[in-house]
């Protein structure tokens, strides 16, 4: 199995650990991720103003170029996934906009790529039973909260990723790795997103609610699929701590780091140095390292 791969701007820099672990895990699990030969930033927001065609050009160009190289495109970042999947859908359904956009980018793209998230590959194409066979390390009942955030799921008709209010795919993945998935009420709640530049205090508050909800439900660790969420719920723990003295830090990992750990990758290949809250003490305590 080979998938075209769109890393996105952040996975090439601040979330390098997400990118590297995903690639290594893919080769362990027997599928290839072929990085697009020519890609740009997707724009990091799907434009909600219906007349804003300009913001649709970068994702459309990425998709059109990708179609020349293959038929299935995968990505890891939940925001990129959202932007690419929604744009693809729009190019399929809206003939008038498709024509305008194609004229502008000088391509003839019809929206016929399959856009698939890495987690969907793991479930549908590789299969959790096969992942189980490959595990070198069971996660020994580590209690983990799966944080979906918004962009994987909403708008649910277009994303069609999982149930809109009570998704379970991420939990199934964690259970397959031998962890105990902790269900918590804020797992699909917004992390505050780009409000980190608009109203940082509001974003910090959103993050605090998510973290406290997960910890109260028994989570010792949280996994995420998005560098934006991870910035808000991992790096901003510093700001939460400054404001709430009783707040206890909780490690936040990308799901591929956890997968890599279970597949037996070396610690230095897991890129923990880019995680803000150090997960090493917890992993050592559980004899996972």
């Amino acid at each position: 199995m080979e998938y075209l791969y769109f890393p996105g701007c952040t996975l090439n820099t601040k979330a390098k650990n997400f990118d590297l672990t995903a690639r290594t895990c893919a080769s362990h699990l027997g599928f290839q991720m072929k990085e697009l030969s020519n890609w740009t930033c997707c724009g990091a927001t799907f434009p909600l103003a219906t007349d804003n065609l300009m913001a649709l050009l970068p994702p459309s160009r990425i998709l059109a170029n990708a179609r020349e190289e293959g038929t299935a495109l995968t990505t890891l970042c939940a925001v990129c996934f959202n932007v690419l999947k929604r744009t693809n859908r729009l190019l399929q359904d809206d003939g008038e906009k498709r024509e305008k956009i194609n004229n502008f980018i000088e391509k003839h793209y019809e929206g016929d790529l399959r856009i698939v998230h890495y987690l969907e590959i793991l479930k549908q194409d590789v299969g959790f039973p096969r992942i189980k066979e490959k595990l070198k390390k069971e996660l020994g009942g580590l209690r983990i909260g799966a944080y979906y955030g918004c962009m994987l799921l909403r708008p649910f008709k277009e994303m069609a990723f999982d149930d809109k209010e009570r998704p379970t795919l991420f939990e199934e993945f964690l259970e397959a790795l031998g962890a105990k998935a902790v269900d918590f009420p804020y797992k699909t709640e917004c992390c505050g997103s780009f409000q980190s530049v608009g109203s940082p205090d509001v974003a910090t508050e959103c993050a605090r609610k998510i973290l406290e909800s997960a910890v109260k439900s028994g989570a010792e660790m949280i996994v995420s699929t998005c560098p934006m969420c991870t910035f808000n719920i991992d790096h901003k723990q510093m700001d939460i701590k400054a404001k709430y003295l009783h707040f206890r830090e909780v490690p936040v990992l990308y799901f591929t780091q956890l997968l890599g750990l279970a597949l037996g990758l070396e610690t230095k290949a897991l890129g923990f140095e880019l995680n803000f809250v150090d997960p090493l003490p917890l992993l050592k305590e559980r004899a996972l390292l």
Binding site: C9, T10, A44, V79, F194, S196, V197, G198, M228, F231
Partner: peptide
């Protein structure tokens, strides 16, 4: 503009990933 880019704290510019700025700038 709804935010002043020149007034964003240095510390945020260093810590935050690109994705936050790209989407934030699109919105503000």
């Amino acid at each position: 503009d709804a935010i002043r880019v020149s007034e964003l704290p240095e510390e945020l510019l260093e810590r935050a990933p690109q994705i936050v700025f790209v989407s934030g700038f699109r919105k503000f």
